[in-house]
């Protein structure tokens, strides 16, 4: 069973979301997801200033054997992207929840984050998928 930190929120499409002190949301893909995809070779980042709806694809992570869309977990505007991933996409493999973060958004509606899964629900989802 892979690492699923309690303090984060999750989506069905395997993104994690951290609520920062300033109300912005940091987004990445989970430890479980990076394990499925394998060694990352490229990350296509969203553009800062661009707005996305919840569930809209806004980035792509690419491994040798797969390319996977990253969906915006809630509606909002991208305020920062992790440019280090351009040269070191493997950060997602090394530490999915910290150095491997992908982008930060300013949510249109801060309450939207409450609709995302908590760690227990996500754990159940991963367990169900593994069967």
């Amino acid at each position: 069973m892979s690492d699923i930190p309690q303090e984060l929120k999750y989506t069905k499409s395997h993104e994690w979301v951290r609520v920062e002190e300033d109300g912005t949301l940091t987004v990445g893909i989970t430890e479980h997801a990076q394990g499925l995809l394998g060694d990352m070779v490229f990350v296509e980042l969203p553009e800062v200033g661009e707005s996305y709806e919840a569930g809209q694809d806004c980035a792509v992570v690419e491994s040798v054997k797969a390319a996977s869309d990253i969906y915006c977990p809630v509606e909002g505007e991208v305020v920062e992207v992790n440019e280090e991933l351009e040269d070191a996409p493997e950060q997602i493999n090394v530490n999915a929840y910290h150095e491997g973060w992908i982008f930060r958004i300013n949510p249109s509606n801060p309450d939207d984050v409450d609709n995302l899964m908590n760690a227990d629900d996500y754990t159940a989802l991963v367990e169900a998928e593994e069967h």
Binding site: F42, E62, A66, A67, D69
Partner: peptide, 12 residues
């Protein structure tokens, strides 16, 4: 760079 191609990326 096979992840660009149809056998992996399919409709995209």
């Amino acid at each position: 760079l096979q992840a660009r191609e149809q056998h992996i990326r399919r409709s995209k």
